[in-house]
Amino acid sequence: MAFSVEERGRANTLDYRVYFKNAEGTFISPFHDIPIYADEAQNIFHAVVEVSRWTNAKMEIATSDPLNPLKQDVKKGNLRFVANVFPHKGYIWNYGAIPQTWEDPNHKDRDTGCCGDNDPIDICDIGDKVCVRGDVIRVKVLGALALIDEGETDWKLIVINTEDPQAPEYNDIEDVRRLKPGYLEATFDWFKRYKVPDGKPENQFAFGGEFKNRDFAIDTVKSTHEFWKAMITKQSDAGDINCTNTGVADSPFCVSAASAEAVVKSTCAFGPEVSIPSSVDKWFYCEK
């Protein structure tokens, strides 16, 4: 299954968007139209790469925009870049989300005691390849970390790209601990402290910060897929989520290819990117 992207606006500006197309050239929603499964029998999932490893721009699926393109997160009118908290430079994995999942903000997780964060479920790809923003990859789920972000459950799945030469060696969270010593500890440390340079306290975690295993993580993915199915068929309240799609047959939000193209063409034309502010290269040193 092949996908491509079309950029609009200028990178590192408020107008920048990355729209997705399927193999037929129809504009689609990466949130709703890309199938969750790449191989259901083998529990191989699709994942949308929002952020390339070592970069700082906080790109994300725009859940409230028609067709849900990638855009850069904004806070108080300014583009968001994650800080370099020593020794971590930007994101330390390819970061993204699994399509057709939704952490329902009206559902209290029985394990964490907190409601969902209203986004598709996040992934941290630990494979060696540095992916490109907008890549759609096939991943094996290895485990999960339950971040509690301002009182909301925000699952972070540890995955590996199936194209990684070492992927066959990774089948559960303990394989990461064994084959990439220090990586899980660095991941925990990253999520705990990445907001500290913004003046916020360290993040909290469910399960005392323990990484849950593969089976637990896959069950979590499947439950968020059920929440998404209820939302996209209008069986639950989507709130401010934009459910426009071009390929979910039983969804009342499905639109024609022409309507989808009109959405994209109404946005700013693609242009040369704007330089990233020099302040993004600053390093922060925080006591543990």
Rank of each mutant, 00 (worst) to 15 (best):
K21E: 11
Y91E: 03
L67I: 05
L67D: 10
P105H: 06
G271W: 09
K282D: 15
D119G: 01
F253E: 00
L67E: 09
G247I: 01
V141K: 10
V263W: 08
N203Y: 06
K200I: 12
T55D: 00
P197T: 03
N22M: 10
A11Y: 14
V221A: 03
S64R: 13
R110M: 12
L142V: 09
V139A: 05
N68P: 14
M1T: 14
E150T: 13
S4C: 06
T244V: 14
G113A: 03
E7P: 02
L142E: 10
D119A: 04
I92N: 12
G116P: 06
S256H: 08
A206N: 08
D164N: 09
R138T: 08
C243Y: 11
K156R: 15
E169G: 00
D122T: 08
D109E: 11
V51E: 04
N22E: 09
D119M: 11
F270D: 14
F205T: 02
G25C: 00
P66D: 10
F27I: 03
D33V: 03
P181T: 03
N84I: 07
W102R: 11
G143M: 05
A2V: 12
K282T: 13
Y183V: 11
A83D: 07
V18T: 15
N78D: 15
G134V: 14
D135I: 09
S279F: 12
W228A: 04
K156S: 12
G116N: 07
L70R: 06
R193K: 15
I232V: 15
G199M: 03
D119S: 08
E152A: 15
I123E: 00
E50P: 04
L145G: 11
V74Q: 15
P87G: 02
S52E: 10
W283V: 11
E152K: 15
S251W: 02
I232P: 06
A57L: 10
V136M: 02
V264L: 05
D73T: 12
G239Y: 08
I36G: 01
S4N: 13
D104A: 02
I61Y: 09
N245K: 06
L145C: 08
N161F: 02
F284L: 02
V136F: 01
A146T: 09
R110H: 07
